[in-house]
Design a protein around this nucleic acid. Structure first.
Lengths: 378, 378
DNA sequence: GCACACGCAGTAAACGTTTACAGGGCTGAT
DNA sequence: ATCAGCCCTGTAAACGTTTACTGCGTGTGC
């Protein structure tokens, strides 16, 4: 691990000045003979450019940071998987920050932007506090926020729309003839919980169903909690014929309980999850789920950031990624082609609604493929 | 986004030299009055140290790279989740490289080590070629390889032992009284495929069962391929009473086919997967799976790298992480409370991995919270 | 034959730090 | 009063690049 060669080393060996070496290495016009000498010396010494020194001079690191609460979370992972290739294609490295759901860590990340070790940042904040906004407005590098940012903030912002997503699910269930549609939600003091509760109320109204408190059960966003909540709801309303669960884990818990209770899914009770994680496709019966477009949000965020890095200034943009209903066996049954088709039509309409310019079918197919991943390594 | 203040700006404003500013910022002994002036100026200007300039001088970037084939792969993700906190605690940032299973990209990553934008590298190569070894021996920064590296290579190496892992599964199935144990493997020209095939043969011999070619079916490491392979095997050997699948996805495919064929799991056919991904716990029936210790391999790799970064030279080390059988319903049945309890205990151990120093109950609760993900964000 | 232009390469400054070294002022001892 | 010694601060070099500027030598046009 001896000190590597620098342009000075090369210059000496080639008998030229460091300026010439630099010019050759950067392909600037140079006499053929000089090029030859420099290249030869560089090859012999196994020279590699020092990225740090380059960055210091050029004020560009070719690195971008992605900050979220936890790498293990499937929603963030879906984003990461879209962000990475977009950045890579543009020649940027990805620096990962896991803030462990600690707000102070998020502020830290924003602060460290000032250290200029990255050219830009994509962040998924847990919630946006005053401190966030302050740091954001003072940020010395472009930032894209995935989540809710107050109007008028001077940053690019990419959002999901879980309220509409809930609507898609309710519509779907209603079309299938379900009339006693229960909701298993997470805590109402969380952003997702509140949005979903509101969406549920409104969607019921939209399809002309009454809102019945007995059909709503609050738990938390985990499988065990989901089991518990569904058990309670089932005791209260034995003839519930559909369950909308605030995420896929809750829905898995619901499947557990329904199975134990001897209810058939979807014949007796249809079940819908949210987030459309890998688990939804893996479960049995496979789970109909509302995709909130984590993957697409990641992709859009990366593209917005690149625009700013390459283009320069423009007005901050707000992109809302539309939700999409992914119908699987837990509502349609594998043998219900009619429902499936209706659903497909809807999903398509839905996708067209906000017509994001980015969603190619090829990219989407690829994503699905990768998701399955060659598992193990030896 | 005006140019940020530098120590020069501060020096001017405080009326001192840049050396004094630097000393104050680094806490070197300085007159109280000077400290005050410098701090005041720094605060007013909102100064933040430039990490690039620092790195140039100190020859330390406080960044470490992690390179693997695909972020979306659960096995790599499990590693990442352990690596990240270890590095973060030591003050290192994590740079992520996804090589998309392209060998040239891996070589690229090794090459780019010379650019000195990171202090070290953890890599999970697909396979180790001559080119890899060459680059490794010339590497100008410490590298830890997760996977198989030839004897005598001068790098730290962390391995799984899938051969023994297969043995665990066969033992388990044999103990449960299964005698016609099929194997659904991936391609034999992959490192995992070959190791598992060998393990299967030997494990059968160890428990005194004959090797029967009809019981072996080669497919690929995906769910659909798994379905196909299991269908073939089932046609050939209708009375097979157990299936060992080379990864969890294949096992999920097996569950699909067995269900469709009217076979009960585990009563008629017991199923075992490998890798113990999230999917194993989520499926129904939940899947007994051989954990190859991805999480632990990640943790060990990170620790080895840190040792080298902080400590300095020592002999390269080889650590083999033992496999572990995680028993769930697909072999034990839900009605086997003993097995279930064993499983819970095991899951906890797994979370603790090698007893991370941070494992307070609160931290654990928080981690758990995140892991499940308040999946979606609004 | 001279001026001018042009192609090429070298010198030096700059990016923002850290740090070795030197020097200035003060204290205290002689 | 002088000087050693100490504390503090400033000067300058260094990390490895890129690049503006300068200058040299050659060839061309008059």
């Amino acid at each position: 691990m001896a000190d590597g060669p620098t342009i000075t080393t090369i210059a000496e060996r080639a008998g030229v000045s460091i300026a010439s070496v630099s010019r050759v290495l950067n392909g600037l016009p140079t006499r053929q003979e000089t090029v030859r000498k420099v290249m030869a010396a560089a090859d012999e010494l196994g020279y590699v450019r020092n990225a740090v020194a380059r960055s210091l001079k050029s004020r560009r690191t070719h690195q971008v940071a992605f900050a979220m609460a936890d790498v293990g979370n499937p929603a963030y992972l879906a984003m990461l998987r879209q962000i990475q290739p977009v950045l890579k294609a543009a020649g940027y490295r990805l620096v990962l920050h896991s803030t462990d759901a600690v707000v102070a860590d998020e502020i830290d990340v924003l602060h460290s932007l000032g250290e200029r070790y990255v050219d830009g940042l994509i962040m998924v904040p847990l919630r946006v506090t005053e401190a966030h906004l302050e740091m954001l407005s003072a940020a010395r590098a472009p930032v894209v926020i995935i989540g809710q940012v107050p109007e008028g903030s001077r940053v690019d912002n990419v959002r999901a729309d879980s309220r509409t997503g809930v609507g898609l699910a309710i519509d779907h269930l209603h079309l299938l003839g379900r009339r006693r549609i229960g909701m298993i939600n997470g805590p109402l003091d969380t952003v997702p919980g509140a949005a979903r509760a509101a969406g549920y109320r409104q969607a019921l109204a939209d399809v002309g169903l009454p809102y019945d408190e007995d059909l709503v059960q609050i738990g938390d966003f985990y499988r065990a909690e989901g089991r518990h909540a569904v058990t309670e709801l089932l005791a209260r309303v034995p003839d519930v014929d559909a369950l909308l669960c605030a995420n896929d884990l809750i829905a898995l818990g619901a499947l557990d309980v329904l199975r134990a209770a001897g209810k058939r899914v979807p014949q007796d009770v249809a079940v819908v999850g949210m987030d459309d994680t890998d688990l939804a496709a893996a479960s049995w019966p496979s789970l109909t789920s509302v995709s909130l477009g984590s993957a697409e949000r990641g992709k859009v965020a990366a593209e917005l950031l690149l625009e700013r890095l390459q283009g320069g200034d423009r007005e901050p943009r707000l992109v809302t990624v539309p939700p999409r209903l992914v119908v699987r066996a837990s509502t349609a049954g594998e043998s219900a082609p009619a429902a499936r088709t209706a659903e497909d039509r809807k999903a398509k309409e839905n996708r067209d609604v906000a017509g994001s310019a980015t969603g190619s079918d090829v990219a989407e197919a690829l994503t699905e493929l990768d998701a399955q991943g060659k598992g193990s390594l030896e």
